Amino acid sequence: MLRFVHTCILGLIAAGVVHLAIVFMLPDHTVRDAWSRISNAADYYQTIQLDARPDSPLRIDNPYFAGAACRFSLEDGLLHVRSEGKIPFWTLAIFDNRSQNTFSLNDRVAEDHSLDTILLTPIQMQRLKNDPSADLGQSLFVETDVVEGFVLVRAFIPDETWEPQVRAFLNSIRCEAVETQ
């Protein structure tokens, strides 16, 4: 019985030490989240390229993918994300300012597989529906509660012959705030 009590006490002490170590390490790890790294690398609506380089704000270690990201604030208006060109496959993910993925889509839901997406809040969507003069073409509308966050576009590179076309696609990505009435 004494051995059992001794083992329990040692287990509790070890758990306490591990708990304290995690608490002390937490501040070091929280400043390295995706939102913080992108915030340090670029301003709002500025597109940055992401790849496997060590100095990239967000590394994409998969050699078959490249990416681009931009921060946004829907307080400035709608976010219009678009790019030129056609590539085999792309995905767009919306993250909040806690780096949590809130929405994802890919080229299969877009007309003509082109990247032309508008991100807006429910209130902005209602205003847009009530404005008959608003003409945003064939854009894909994504309604979200995320007011501040970032968009991550990843593109598939099937082989090295596609790399220039994929890089051109990612370099042509524009994230623009569109003011609403």
Results as ranks from 00 to 15, higher is better:
residue 150 F to S: 04
residue 118 I to R: 07
residue 5 V to R: 12
residue 152 L to I: 01
residue 99 S to K: 00
residue 77 G to N: 04
residue 60 I to G: 05
residue 44 Y to C: 08
residue 89 F to M: 08
residue 35 W to P: 08
residue 47 T to R: 02
residue 7 T to W: 09
residue 57 P to A: 06
residue 18 V to K: 02
residue 89 F to N: 11
residue 33 D to N: 13
residue 102 T to P: 04
residue 133 S to G: 12
residue 109 V to I: 08
residue 85 G to T: 00
residue 101 N to C: 11
residue 5 V to K: 12
residue 13 I to N: 06
residue 80 H to W: 13
residue 142 V to Y: 05
residue 33 D to L: 05
residue 120 L to W: 10
residue 49 Q to W: 00
residue 65 F to E: 08
residue 34 A to E: 13
residue 62 N to Q: 07
residue 173 I to S: 02
residue 16 G to Y: 01
residue 47 T to H: 01
residue 21 A to D: 11
residue 23 V to K: 11
residue 65 F to S: 04
residue 85 G to H: 04
residue 127 R to H: 13
residue 166 V to P: 02
residue 28 D to E: 15
residue 135 D to Q: 09
residue 154 R to S: 12
residue 165 Q to N: 13
residue 170 L to W: 05
residue 35 W to E: 06
residue 47 T to D: 04
residue 135 D to G: 06
residue 161 T to M: 08
residue 36 S to G: 03
residue 140 L to V: 12
residue 114 S to T: 13
residue 71 R to M: 07
residue 117 T to R: 01
residue 24 F to Q: 15
residue 145 D to H: 09
residue 106 N to K: 02
residue 2 L to K: 15
residue 164 P to D: 02
residue 72 F to W: 05
residue 50 L to V: 02
residue 43 D to K: 12
residue 149 G to V: 00
residue 94 I to G: 05
residue 97 N to P: 06
residue 4 F to A: 15
residue 26 L to I: 11
residue 53 R to P: 03
residue 114 S to H: 11
residue 134 A to W: 09
residue 145 D to E: 10
residue 138 Q to L: 10
residue 129 K to S: 14
residue 113 H to K: 07
residue 44 Y to I: 12
residue 96 D to L: 00
residue 76 D to A: 14
residue 131 D to T: 12
residue 113 H to F: 14
residue 8 C to A: 15
residue 153 V to Y: 02
residue 79 L to I: 07
residue 133 S to R: 11
residue 112 D to P: 00
residue 95 F to H: 06
residue 51 D to I: 02
residue 90 W to H: 01
residue 91 T to W: 03
residue 85 G to Y: 04
residue 84 E to S: 13
residue 96 D to K: 00
residue 12 L to T: 12
residue 81 V to K: 03
residue 84 E to Q: 14
residue 29 H to P: 07
residue 51 D to P: 01
residue 56 S to K: 01
residue 43 D to S: 15
residue 35 W to T: 09
residue 62 N to W: 01
residue 143 E to R: 09
residue 20 L to C: 12
residue 101 N to Y: 00
residue 39 S to E: 08
residue 126 Q to A: 10
residue 55 D to Q: 09
residue 146 V to C: 01
residue 156 F to I: 02
residue 92 L to E: 08
residue 80 H to K: 09
residue 123 I to N: 14
residue 136 L to E: 10
residue 5 V to G: 07
residue 69 A to W: 03
residue 160 E to M: 08
residue 81 V to M: 10
residue 132 P to S: 13
residue 165 Q to W: 06
residue 179 E to Y: 04
residue 48 I to K: 03
residue 47 T to N: 05
residue 153 V to S: 02
residue 69 A to C: 05
residue 124 Q to A: 14
residue 124 Q to P: 07
residue 137 G to F: 05
residue 53 R to D: 10
